[in-house]
C-alpha cells in the first residue's frame, strides 16, 4: 500500500505537471480538488481517469462517478487495490 501511494503521488506530479511539488508535499488524506490540498480542477479529473487507465488498466466511464474515488490519494489507492486484477 505504501508503495502504491508513493507511486500514485509520483504519477500525479508527472501527469498533472505539478511543478515544485514533491511526493513528500502531498498529504495522502487531504482532498485533491477544491481550494484545500492540491487545488485540482475538472481537467485534472480527466487526466486522473487517463492515469488510472494507463498505469492500472482501470476504466471509469463517467467522470461524475469518480468523485468519491478521486477525493484523496488514499481513496484513489483504495479504489485501485479493490479493483486491480
Amino acid at each position: 500500500m505504501e508503495n502504491l501511494i508513493n507511486d500514485l503521488k509520483a504519477q500525479l506530479i508527472e501527469e498533472l505537471n505539478l511543478e515544485d511539488v514533491t511526493v513528500e508535499d502531498i498529504d495522502t488524506e487531504a482532498p485533491l480538488f477544491g481550494d484545500e490540498g492540491l487545488g485540482l480542477d475538472s481537467i485534472d479529473a480527466l487526466e486522473i481517469i487517463l492515469l488510472l487507465e494507463k498505469y492500472y488498466g482501470l476504466k471509469i466511464e463517467n467522470p461524475k462517478s469518480g468523485k468519491d474515488i478521486f477525493f484523496s490519494v488514499k481513496t484513489l489507492a483504495d479504489y485501485i487495490t479493490a479493483n486491480r486484477k
Binding site: 481537467i43 480527466l46 487526466e47 487517463l50 487507465e53 494507463k54
Partner: peptide
C-alpha cells in the same frame, strides 16, 4: 485511445 485532454484543450 489513452488521449491526453490537456493537450487537446
Amino acid at each position: 485511445s489513452l488521449l491526453n485532454p490537456t493537450a487537446f484543450i
